[in-house]
Write a protein that binds this DNA or RNA. Structure first.
Length: 487
RNA sequence: GGUCCCAUCGUCUAGCGGUCUAGGACGUCGCCCUUUCACGGCGAAAACACGGGUUCGAGUCCCGUUGGGAUCACCA
């Protein structure tokens, strides 16, 4: 209750003026706007998740806009990878996806309206002149801020090439009430006359986002911290157009385990790699991402439904967080244990290259397999013995278990097993325990060589389960293979 | 370097001036369960970066230091 009051107080304090109504009063519209120059990386996935969650929480809309303004670097493959990744994570978007390149004429139109209003100007400076200014600034050890001689010139200069720059205010300051970062103030003198429309007539990112967000009715801009600085420039355009300002929420970036920027070595792979190479479940990745930079008391395992009900911007942390694969893996283990056996079998079967008929066995074995795996890779590995063909390959440690003594024990076991009437878990357990007892040894002494003979490994599900799963014929054959002492 | 932002166990976080001898989770270590390995259960070690204020009282508010991050294009 206390929280609510504070939050409300904060909102009313931030209601600036009537021409720019509090965006939170409008139905919520969020968006994810990736540039298709690569895969959907983990940071982008979290940004998408936060936007999705926020809109769902408020019963609003979540839009997807592909920022393909950089034609040279945008690829069809990248777009597909992004859409695929979002679908995998269950982040569905409202309506069809938008492509920024479709709106170029609209962007240019706005640039010219800004020009007409005297809020922007044609800048005829050449690359050389720009470079010269930059040099001079460097020489005098002063920060570079463009100072165009064309700022106050309204007349067109024939057909010389030009860019359209925003005539950014030079006095005063701009304040952004960021829902994550808090109140951030920047002196307007720090904001330069950035380019809106390039000399080839194409819009820059800065112009395009603002126009698209406005046209799409975006009320809440939730994105990476790296855009905070841009927000101040974008506000310049918004104010010049007299458009309502969206609520901003700049989420801190994700770092690698070493605190440095997330690199390829860490987690900067696409989410598809989390699925295919790491063998993770989408609900685990999603749960992990949610908890990275956001918290809800002591809750760790959070379902989609709970996430929607609980997600808010107030509890998004302000500092960057490190990516912890161990925790992700642990979480994945939790979700594997929780997952449906048939589903897991479907996921693992391709990794094993088994037929549908054999998949039945996989499903049967799943209850014993899944507590032993944190990833689908481990799950597949743990299931491998079920489908191995004789003669088995042996791990070194497993081979070492098969001593002469052990082999005689195997023979004794084989003897008893052959005579077994019912091949089920209970009967098997009774027999094996009997063998151990008769030989006056502990169960482990017979179980381990048996495990080695049956699986080629030193670790596996419980030995009675292994026997039951493998079946009479296969089990007996595998044991028989190891009964004779080897020279 | 300029500007902006950040700072609780190794990591992710809880904490909204007293209930903090700082809670949870991962990881680590120990014990239990046990035919192996897991799962599960129990327990331990482990943090308020530092220095000044403000206050009866500060992890919580303010300032500074240090450390970290972001950004400075006709890229997005």
């Amino acid at each position: 209750m206390q929280h609510e009051e504070k939050r409300n107080a904060r909102h009313s304090a931030s209601e600036r003026n009537l021409s720019s109504p509090d965006p939170s009063a409008r139905p919520v519209v969020t968006r994810f706007a990736p540039s298709p120059t690569g895969y959907l990386h983990i940071g982008g996935a979290r940004t998408a998740l936060f936007n999705w969650l926020f809109s769902k929480h408020h019963g609003g809309k979540f839009l997807l806009r592909i920022e393909d303004t950089d034609r040279a670097r945008s690829t069809k493959e990248a777009i597909d990878a992004i859409l695929d990744g979002m679908r995998w994570l269950g982040l569905d978007w409202d309506g069809h996806e938008y492509y920024q390149s479709q709106f170029w004429s609209r962007h240019a139109e706005i640039a010219h309206r800004l020009l007409d209003r005297g809020a922007a100007y044609r800048c005829y400076m050449t690359q050389e002149e720009l470079a010269e200014q930059r040099e001079a600034a460097k020489r005098n050890r002063r920060p570079f801020r463009i100072s165009s001689p064309w700022r106050e010139v309204a007349e067109e200069q024939g057909d010389r090439p030009f860019v359209i720059r925003l005539k950014a205010p030079r006095e005063g300051e701009t304040v952004i009430d960021d829902r994550v970062q808090g109140r951030v103030t920047v002196q307007n003198a720090e904001i330069d006359d950035f380019v809106l429309l390039r000399s080839d007539g194409t819009p820059t990112y800065m112009l395009a986002v603002v126009v698209d967000d406005h046209d799409m009715g975006v009320t809440h801009v939730i994105r990476g911290d790296d855009h905070l600085n841009n927000a101040f420039r974008q506000i310049g355009i918004i104010r010049a157009m007299g458009w309502p300002e969206p609520t901003y929420a700049h989420v801190p970036l994700i770092h690698g385990p070493d605190g440095a920027k997330l690199s390829k070595r860490h987690g900067a792979m696409g989410v598809d790699a989390y699925r295919d190479e790491l063998g993770l479940l989408p609900e685990a990745v999603s749960n992990y991402l949610l908890r990275l930079g956001w918290g809800h008391g002591d809750d760790e395992i959070i379902s989609r439904e709970q996430a929607i009900a609980w997600f808010d911007l107030d509890h998004v942390g302000k500092s960057p967080s490190r990516f912890d694969f161990k925790k992700l893996e642990n979480l994945n283990g939790h979700y594997i244990r929780e997952a449906d056996d048939q589903r897991l079998a479907d996921l693992v079967a391709p990794r094993l290259g088994i037929t549908d008929r054999k998949k039945m066995l996989l499903v049967q074995a799943m209850p014993e397999l899944k507590p032993r795996a944190n990833t689908l890779l481990q799950l597949a590995d743990g299931a491998r013995f079920l489908f191995a063909t004789r003669p088995l390959d042996f791990e070194e440690a497993a081979a070492a278990l098969l001593t002469t003594e052990a082999r005689t024990l195997l023979a004794a076991t084989h003897n008893k097993l052959v005579a077994l009437a019912k091949w089920d878990r209970e009967s098997l357990e009774a027999v094996i325990r009997e063998v151990a007892e008769n030989s006056g040894i502990k169960l482990g002494k017979v179980a381990q060589p048996l495990r080695a003979a049956l699986t080629g490994r030193t670790t596996s599900p419980g030995i009675f389960d292994v026997l039951a799963l493998l079946g009479r014929e296969e089990s007996l054959a595998r044991i028989a293979d190891q009964m004779e002492p080897k020279e």
